[in-house]
Design a protein around this nucleic acid. Sequence first.
DNA 1: TCACGTTTGTGGAACGTTCCCAAAGTGAAA
DNA 2: TTTCACTTTGGGAACGTTCCACAAACGTGA
Lengths: 337, 337
Amino acid sequence: MTDRPRNPTIIDVARLAGVSKSVVSRVVSGRGSVGEETRRRVLRAAEELGYVVNAVARAMVAHRTYTVGAFVRDAATPFYGHLLTALQERAAFHGYRVVTATGSGGFEVSDEYRALETLAMLRVEALIVCSGLLPSEQIVPFAARLPTVVAGRPETHPSITSVYCDEDEGGTALAGHLLGLGHREIAVITVAASSSVTLGPRTAAMTRHLREHGARVLEIPGPHRETAGAWATEVLRHPEITAVMTPSDRHAIALLEQLRLRDVAVPERLSVTGYDGIGDLTTPLIGLTHWRQPIDLIGSRAVDALVRLLDGEQPPDHHQALPGTLVIGRTTAPPAG
Amino acid sequence: MTDRPRNPTIIDVARLAGVSKSVVSRVVSGRGSVGEETRRRVLRAAEELGYVVNAVARAMVAHRTYTVGAFVRDAATPFYGHLLTALQERAAFHGYRVVTATGSGGFEVSDEYRALETLAMLRVEALIVCSGLLPSEQIVPFAARLPTVVAGRPETHPSITSVYCDEDEGGTALAGHLLGLGHREIAVITVAASSSVTLGPRTAAMTRHLREHGARVLEIPGPHRETAGAWATEVLRHPEITAVMTPSDRHAIALLEQLRLRDVAVPERLSVTGYDGIGDLTTPLIGLTHWRQPIDLIGSRAVDALVRLLDGEQPPDHHQALPGTLVIGRTTAPPAG
DNA sequence: TCACGTTTGTGGAACGTTCCCAAAGTGAAA
DNA sequence: TTTCACTTTGGGAACGTTCCACAAACGTGA
């Protein structure tokens, strides 16, 4: 950064308008009374100099930054991408900015700590945690320092506010749909509850509901989409299986790609389900049967809750579970035979 | 915001450690020399109080915010979403933060002006403009105030630096691909150059190249994806047409959905092409033939150029055109008959 | 005319840093 | 011992705002 011209300050404006800096401050901040004639002179001077309020100086004295920090671990996934957009939009509506900190993809604790530190340096007023990976216990210390809302994932810790779409309901609805179609031998691509707070519970719900209703379940551990080829192979080794449930739309797409390579007919030979309702992935072209989460609503409700916390109120619902929708596409059908 | 406890300051730390604030400042900022024993005492005191540097105060005195503003108009589109992520990542690498301002979707000029004003208030050090909609002339005044780089769209104005993937090359390559397959009657969903700086030129290039090589082109004006049904109807009114070129992957998907509803076989009856190479949209499951832009590279090169501008150097290439790739999928094939 | 409230304007302190300059301390060379 | 260079420390100004206490000006009703 080389010597670029300094921005004009309140004092430059005051000098040009022939008043004190206090008057200019009152004009630009809109607090306190100023004579009509004086106000006009000040505005003209500001215009002439190209004066723009310095939010940094203002933030320092006001002890307010009107900024909330979004902590995102798995930002690259479309679900969190959408969520972030929704947050940003709603925050702007309330007059807040969002700065995003990410654990830079790494899985080390120090990484997260640094990200939080950065947000603290910026004096964000509150925190929105969006991450299916970060375990609850790690969020508690954040919440002790700043008003914190967890968005897009189930959270039960009493000291934390959260907004999410119930994972049990989604997993159960999808499982019920397959049972209703007549499937009784079903594979579930499972994710350990310990490795993802969102993906774990939903696959657990699927498995549980299926078993409770007399279906036989083959659990295939599948945290990484890259192993979709292996899932396909494993499913096909069990010819009695007629349906596969996956933990997310992306997992479903990856599986469908693999099945296509192997010339397996969907839904004739195998039914497949997704989860999330990511716009681009659930195009009618593919017609994926899935559980749709109201991502935009989750985002805006999370921000609303945060704003209430900032205003000192306790939000009405400490943990808000929003309703999702079962979307039936063309990747599920009654089992053959 | 109700009375939450003040954050400890450098002075609190100094008092606890029994030194002056200057010493603490030198320890936490890492400039200037401090005795080893004193440094340890200061660090211990900072730890004990939970001291975190105040970036706001620091920014004020240093006249640096290490923040760049990203101005995005069409943020909801996946192309710009990806680009934004890439920018953020690379900026972090260089030690900068990104704050995003959007024209809130509206199309009024005052809207844009306010967004720019907001960024100016925050004292961002530079600007990255990502928008296919904003016309060049409107960017020039931004660039007069702040170092500015335009990312992801062609830009030829001499006073502006830009990084993009050449639209001519992409349009020409896709057109050449169809010509090579033997298509001679082709529809192009066109976008007026005036309404989008990216979509306009690429469809113009397609049309031009096709015509120059003896193909007959039917131009269908199609800025909005919602009218995909009308495109399909129009194309099918001309039975001689064997291929349709669209201005983006999303347009292509929308068209494919409509063709599917009408039971039109792709690619047997009609070939279809996309443009951009959005990861989620170009899944092998759909196998869309498209031109892939190196979005991540565009983002990181744009940030690199910006950092050079901030360092007072002129970036080596004023306008950097990066190479794209022709990706041939299963939505294009030789014409029937 | 006087006392009093209201409106408008002024100057200075405060916010939490960094940076500059001066002072004090520490050795080593003269 | 004195001098000099160098390291370490402390005090104060500056950054650009907001806010507070106060002064001046101006009616206004008694």
